[in-house]
Amino acid sequence: MTQATAQVLPFRQPLTTSIECKDNIEFMHALPKESMQLIVTSPPYNIGKEYEKRTSRQVYIEEQAATIAEAVRLLSPQGSICWQVGNHVDDGEVFPLDILLYDLFKNHGLKLRNRIIWSFGHGLHCQKRFSGRHEAILWFTKGDDYTFNLDPVRVPSKYPNKKHFKGPNRGKISSNPLGKNPADLWEIPNVKANHVEKTIHPCQFPVALIERLVLALTNPGDNVLDPYLGVGSSAIAALKHGRHAYGCDVMPEYVDVARDRVGQLFAGTLRTRPMDKPIYDPTGKSAE
């Protein structure tokens, strides 16, 4: 059955169009080779959500292998792939998808640069195991000559006035005035009912999560692709910072929401949680 997908057009063009594709592979196949600087997405976890059909793990891995192969074809030589995944759960047993999918990327010769842990404070409450409060982002590149811009994503230093205590720089500030490297553990709230970005999607990206990847791994004018677009959070993160955004999804209602959110972005009315907003303020009250 033919399902609708969407392409979000380049920055400064507040217009979206839809095309008819059978799936994300067909959409991706129509894009030029090595045309994407960043491919960032969160695929289905094969747990039976409304936007996916639950299959065997083997079939799921085969489907992911096909999507990943097409992503590698589209990736520029200096580009990055960021695959954000959680766990597949079967009869109470947990199967970490980053472990299951790792070899699919390595089979294409990609190099893992970071296994980023996205930590969030809310989720399902488990009864027979500890409640999951994190997921992983696998960041791969094709080679060693890849784009990485640290300065735009630095976070405040814990001790901004710390000084060298010995050596030729004794007495001088030792920390970078722009802040510190955010490292590979990111504490960013997930999108739940009271989140300013909440839409109809049950598992949508927070825009801030993708903003950090867009700013660090691309430059203005670069192309960003999300083959599982959902309600367009990755497109918003890209467009917000002067990149071009492309994406597709098999759920027409999600595509409609993505179009509407992009329109709000260009109109200046879209509400997003600021990337640098702390989870808690100094008074101990929740920043949400």
Rank of each mutant, 00 (worst) to 15 (best):
T2R: 15
T5R: 09
A6F: 12
Q7W: 15
V8W: 14
L9T: 02
F11S: 11
R12H: 14
T16N: 13
T16I: 14
K22R: 14
I25T: 01
I25L: 14
E26Y: 00
M28I: 02
A30Q: 00
A30C: 02
S35H: 01
S35M: 01
M36R: 04
L38N: 05
T41D: 07
S42L: 12
P43C: 08
P43L: 07
G48S: 06
Y60V: 00
I61M: 11
E62R: 12
E62M: 07
Q64P: 01
A66F: 09
A69W: 10
E70A: 04
V72T: 10
S76G: 08
P77W: 05
C82T: 09
H88R: 09
E93R: 15
F95Y: 15
P96D: 08
P96I: 13
P96H: 10
L97I: 09
D98K: 14
L101K: 04
Y102T: 10
D103N: 14
L104R: 06
K106H: 14
K106Q: 14
G109P: 01
K111I: 13
L112W: 03
R113E: 01
N114L: 06
I116L: 09
F120R: 08
H122Y: 13
H122D: 12
G123S: 11
H125M: 12
H125A: 13
C126F: 15
Q127H: 14
S131Q: 01
E135S: 11
E135Y: 04
A136E: 15
A136M: 15
I137K: 05
T141V: 05
Y146I: 04
L150P: 00
V153E: 00
V153L: 00
R154K: 04
V155Q: 06
P156M: 02
P156G: 00
S157G: 09
Y159H: 12
P160A: 01
N161R: 06
F165W: 15
P168M: 12
G171T: 10
K172T: 07
S174E: 14
S175T: 07
G179P: 01
K180R: 15
K180V: 10
P182V: 04
D184M: 11
L185Q: 12
P189L: 07
N190D: 03
A193I: 04
A193E: 10
H195K: 03
E197R: 09
T199A: 00
P202R: 10
C203F: 11
A208R: 02
A208H: 01
R212K: 06
L217F: 13
D226Y: 04
I236V: 15
L239W: 04
R243C: 08
A245M: 04
D249N: 12
D249K: 06
V250S: 15
M251Y: 08
M251G: 04
P252G: 07
V257G: 01
V257E: 09
G268K: 03
P274G: 06
P274C: 05
M275P: 03
K277I: 00
P278C: 00
D281Y: 13
T283H: 09
E288S: 05
